[in-house]
């Protein structure tokens, strides 16, 4: 029970990751896929932040000597990853706009049908 509750943030990570992954796989709507991808990435962000957290620690700002503070490196790392995530989302959404312009739909199954119809004649 202790391990279960004590590591609850890791359980959150796993649950979020699976939710995100499920959306990416199961949904046909391209926007929803991007949202799923975002949830999936958020789970990873929490994983990193959890690793740096120290119980009772303060922000890593130079202050009185000897104070307990959280490890700053994972935060910095994940800041980079968040930027990457935002860029991915932006690019993905831009692609969806272009896809909608070109096909008139952003449902993946519709698009595949349109592509196949182009092939057949």
């Amino acid at each position: 029970m202790q391990t279960f509750l004590g590591l609850y943030n890791f359980w959150v990570v796993i649950v979020l990751m699976m939710i995100g992954f499920y959306i990416v796989i199961a949904h046909d709507n391209l926007v929803k896929k991007i949202i799923g991808l975002n949830i999936f990435q958020t789970a990873v962000f929490i994983l990193y932040i959890s690793a740096g957290k120290i119980q009772g620690g303060t922000a890593p700002i130079l202050g009185e000597p000897g104070a307990v503070y959280s490890h700053p490196l994972p935060h910095v790392l994940i800041l980079t990853a968040i930027v990457v995530g935002v860029a991915t989302t932006a690019l993905g959404l831009a692609l969806i706009v272009r896809i909608h312009e070109a096909y008139g739909s952003n449902e993946e199954d519709d698009l595949l049908v349109l592509d196949r119809r182009e092939d057949s004649p």
């Binding site: 690019l91 993905g92 692609l95 993946e108």
Partner: peptide
């Protein structure tokens, strides 16, 4: 190409 790029992105 758009759809291919999107699938690759995911």
């Amino acid at each position: 190409a758009l759809l291919a790029a999107f699938q690759y992105l995911i």
